[in-house]
């Protein structure tokens, strides 16, 4: 298992939550749970009543081609979730820039990523067209001051 803190793919300054992430179902029942893991087919909106106590959401990507986790991440951020949002599983260097835009701030890939490739990927785009969860000002607004 890759430690996201050690691998450097954590873009937060607070201390990582050490609790294990439980399933969505278990999370709803265990009133002291802080960390949850959601699978592609699960409705992320089930977590919205628990935003107060949520500290870590792991979004699983069993295969990088399944993009449901991108919507899950944005929905959480749009609803005001500010805790750690970690992409786990088949997370590749060419996806992490988009994941970051959708609100992920930690990555725990199955396979270790090359640091240089990650830096290249994250610094590639000078600007962005759409407003998303990362708060970057889109080109549309830059054009009009």
């Amino acid at each position: 298992m890759v430690d996201p803190a050690q691998n450097g793919l954590r873009f937060r300054t607070d201390a990582p939550v050490s609790d294990p992430a439980v399933t969505v179902e278990a999370f709803a029942e265990q009133t002291n749970a802080l960390a949850v893991r959601i699978e592609p087919g699960e409705d992320v909106r089930l977590l919205l009543p628990f935003l107060d106590r949520l500290r870590l959401v792991e979004v699983n990507f069993p295969s990088f081609g399944d993009g449901r986790g991108y919507s899950a991440a944005r929905i959480l951020r749009e609803a005001g979730y500010t805790g750690e949002l970690r992409a786990v599983g088949d997370v590749l260097v060419d996806q992490i820039a988009y994941m970051k835009r959708c609100g992920f701030d930690a990555f725990q890939p199955d396979e270790l990523l090359d640091r240089g490739d990650v830096e290249n990927a994250l610094s590639r785009w000078p600007d962005v067209y759409q407003p998303t969860a990362d708060g970057r000002v889109p080109i549309w607004n830059l054009r009009h001051g």
């Binding site: 991108y70 835009r101 959708c102 067209y129």
Partner: peptide
């Protein structure tokens, strides 16, 4: 422009 490199809708 909106759809170019849209991070949520690329997969």
């Amino acid at each position: 422009q909106w759809s170019s490199f849209h991070p949520e809708f690329s997969y």
